[in-house]
Design a protein around this nucleic acid. Structure first.
Lengths: 338, 338
DNA sequence: TTGTACGCGTTATCAT
DNA sequence: ATGATAACGCGTACAA
């Protein structure tokens, strides 16, 4: 075993097996076109040399290996790993590699990461995020790479759009709270400037206005953790006039923070105030009281996005559903579908 | 804009700028060796064509682009995204791309993913996981690629090892519980066959034995969620004789599940039973009562692992600390450092 | 300062 | 069934 050998290549295997590189390549790609005898020789050579084919070269030469890129602001948002797991499932089935790019909520970094993603010429780019700059839009268009927005529905889709309508979902959830008999329903959100949160707010406002009610929005800064912000928002809402009898949070983490705070303050949920979240994170069903919320098909979203980039991936049959739902738990009552 | 152009290459830019490919290449790699005049022409050509250099080809030709691979059982474990974020920070600074491979707790899949990672010839492979098969060990050795185990300390490290000693941490935590005056300290764990959990159990047993106490271990199956298992384990422990006055959970999620269950049962924590976790997840400081636990330097671990693979990445000065700590919160008292 | 020519490791095409 | 040869797009000696 020569130690400083730069790399074991197809040539090495070929020499050892007494054939040419082309035969080795065929051994991998169309084994049935290689005679059983040489097949054994090749297998032995590969094993002895510990050969692993170079995907970089393979991809440059033909488009043999598949590659997917995921771009996301952060992995700390609970739904992001879930979407990525969906992507990864499909990628695995299609033997595709997965590249991950974080933008850290920074638009400049996002431009860089999008360009980096394009530079690897993946079979598709799956975008979890918010706004996309014009510069990036141009590059994406020029690159001719499928670009899938997998989280929020886009007003100006760059490519394919499998995202959710966060405004419709928030509107419908508000309608169900209204239908359940809550009189003054507030909406609580962190001031973060994200499109999805603005969408959710919009949906809430639509529903309230449609029923002739005055929207009552509580906002706080984005310095603290989501849990802390939730606590703060609950306190704000309790101090308002009129004090809401139900509070719809723009995210489950905020709502969970509010539940913890309610517990600290000795408030009863939902008797003193009903609380409702958005996202259905794992914690939401375990917390006491369990959280009424909007469940999002995150994994399915990821799978769907990946399928759009990898047409060769085995499709499930029947095609799997990818729908959101409203989950009534202990923290708030919900009216049935209108 | 020709639409079905296969790809925009260096050649296209060169032609448009009236120079050869070499000059464009230099423009990117050593701009100072290109005259300002042609520099402008090139910049214009790049912009007009929306050219993005092909990293695949670049990497095959020279080793211009950097690439890192992360292999993990899942993204659903709360510490995994944190470690990856650490990796990603450093990767960004070094202009390295990041590949992600999930093994889904399946050793066969893990072998495949490790081989896939190697096939892209990354500058390093960062492994978050447990056991590594012999076959994989051989491939890793043959590939000559830095292989960093970033989560658990390995008995038989394959490559570099920046992991934590989960047994030492569990031992010290147990010692602190003993020092705090708890009489019967139980250990609760899911039967999952992971090395890190076995390590934690071992540390607990060491500490108990050292103080002449009989270890009292509670185990449950791995079918349910962590939260549900935690609830189950709490119930088991309460039914035991003697009933422990403190329960050390092998993970924070289990402990959180126990706290929720205690709340449902009307048990007071820590008066009726003290509860202690391992991992310091975000939820642990927010839950009521807040959870006493072992805090792990996950992000720093990721950064450190990445630095080992990317020597060119700008190093922080002074070198950042990467140490665990014991966090006393409401759910259990802790003795100060022995 | 700029250009020529070859190599990186694999695959596709066309022969044999 | 197997081989020879030419790409794939870029980097780098070396030459001009």
């Amino acid at each position: 075993m020569k130690s400083q050998r730069p790399q074991i290549t197809l040539d090495d295997v070929a020499t050892r097996a007494g054939v040419t590189t082309m035969t080795i390549s065929r051994y991998f790609r169309t084994p049935e076109k290689v005679s059983p005898a040489t097949r054994d020789k090749i297998a032995a050579a590969i094993d002895q040399l510990g050969y692993v084919a170079d995907s970089t070269a393979a991809r440059l030469a033909g488009k043999t290996r598949s590659l997917l890129a995921v771009i996301t602001p952060s992995l700390a948002l609970p739904y992001v790993p879930e979407i990525i797991e969906g992507v990864s499932e499909v990628a695995d089935r299609a033997d595709a590699a997965l590249m991950l790019h974080e933008t850290r909520f920074d638009l400049t970094l996002q431009e860089q990461r999008i360009e980096a993603a394009i530079s690897w010429r993946p079979d598709g780019i799956i975008f979890i995020g918010d706004t996309i700059s014009d510069r990036s839009r141009r590059q994406i268009a020029a690159a001719q790479i499928p670009f899938v927005e997998a989280w929020a529905q886009s007003d100006h889709p760059v490519g394919i759009d499998v995202g959710l309508s966060h405004s419709d979902l928030a509107r419908d959830m508000t309608l169900r709270l209204i239908g359940a008999g809550y009189k003054t329903i507030g909406f609580a959100v962190r001031r973060m400037g994200y499109r999805v949160e603005a969408e959710r707010l919009k949906g809430y406002q639509q529903a309230m206005t449609a029923h002739g009610r005055a929207p009552q929005v509580f906002e706080c800064g984005d310095q603290a953790t989501s849990f802390q912000s939730g606590a703060q928002l609950l306190t704000m809402a309790r101090a308002a006039t009129p004090a809401p009898d139900a509070l719809f949070f723009a995210g489950d983490l905020l709502a969970a923070g509010a539940l913890f705070e309610a517990q600290r303050q000795g408030l009863r949920v939902p008797q003193d105030i009903a609380i409702c979240g958005f996202g259905d994170y794992p914690i939401s069903r375990e917390i006491v009281p369990s959280l009424t919320t909007v469940a999002l098909p995150t994994r399915a979203l990821g799978r769907r996005a990946a399928h759009l980039c990898l047409p060769q991936a085995p499709q499930p049959s029947p095609p799997e559903p990818c729908t959101s739902s409203f989950v009534e738990r202990q923290s708030a009552r919900l009216a049935p579908v209108p």
